[in-house]
């Protein structure tokens, strides 16, 4: 191994891998919560929805569209003041997380909205006909019935997140992107770039595999 990849420091690489996992998973939880809120708000306030409201719908949709339109590499810089205000620095894994969440939650929010739209309106109507409260409809019908689609959407989001952690790495967020850029690319150690790439691909495969497996298990259709 040492002959093949002379410049790779394996303990450092392990730490970097751990950092990538850390950022991806924490940001994924944030994106899940914020994305669910955004998706529900988009769905419920849409015309014909349970909370039909033109203004809230337009505001939410605009927020989602604007943040989806900003490239992630630029979004990180835009959020610098916020990051520095919160953490005092923009370097490190934890300060990268707000940007990762803001970068992916609107994307996941749209996926949530699509998942909710897939639910047959008749099922919601049946629940209404039984005298269900809106909160019951949201938790026991809308979210419960769309779980397979919500999970597969989360899988897609997690893979986007792995990519974003690598971009964040280039400004010193840590993780495999950071390692590949500073130790690999800037020092012309291309063996490091190669090993980091392979690890990132493996991480993506792991997320995809887990996501597909869960979706399959949860789907009762």
């Amino acid at each position: 191994m040492t002959d093949l990849f002379p410049n790779v420091d394996w303990p450092d690489l392990m730490i970097a891998t751990g950092e990538t996992f850390y950022m991806t998973i924490v940001a994924l939880i944030g994106a899940l919560i914020l994305g669910l809120l955004l998706g529900l708000l988009l769905y419920l306030t849409s015309p014909g929805g349970l909370w039909q409201n033109k203004y809230i719908h337009i505001i939410t949709a605009t927020f989602v569209n604007v943040f989806r339109a900003i490239p992630f590499a630029i979004l990180i810089f835009l959020l610098f003041p916020v990051t520095i205000f919160l953490f005092g620095t923009f370097r490190g894994t934890t300060p990268a997380i707000p940007a990762l969440i803001v970068g992916t939650a609107p994307f996941y929010g749209r996926l949530v909205e699509i998942a909710l739209r897939e639910i047959d309106k008749g099922v919601v109507e049946a629940a209404q006909a039984m005298g269900a409260k809106t909160s019951t409809i949201i938790f026991k019908v809308l979210l419960k019935e769309s779980i397979p689609a919500l999970v597969s959407g989360l899988t897609v989001t997690s893979i986007a997140l792995v990519g974003y952690t690598a971009i964040a790495g280039m400004i010193g967020a840590g993780g495999l992107g950071d390692y590949a850029y500073f130790y690999g690319f800037t020092r012309r150690n291309f063996d490091i770039v190669f090993v980091c790439t392979v690890l990132i691909v493996i991480i993506v495969f792991i997320f995809q595999f887990i996501g597909d497996w869960m979706t399959k298990r949860l789907d009762k259709r």
Binding site: G122, V123, Q128, A129, M130, G131
Partner: peptide, 22 residues
């Protein structure tokens, strides 16, 4: 009150409208 009254009015549908996850 309508919600409570609806509990006393059963309804069945052409396309059944069952919950797939249950």
């Amino acid at each position: 009150d309508l919600r409570i009254s609806r509990q006393e009015i059963g309804m069945i549908f052409q396309h059944f409208n069952l919950l797939w996850s249950r």
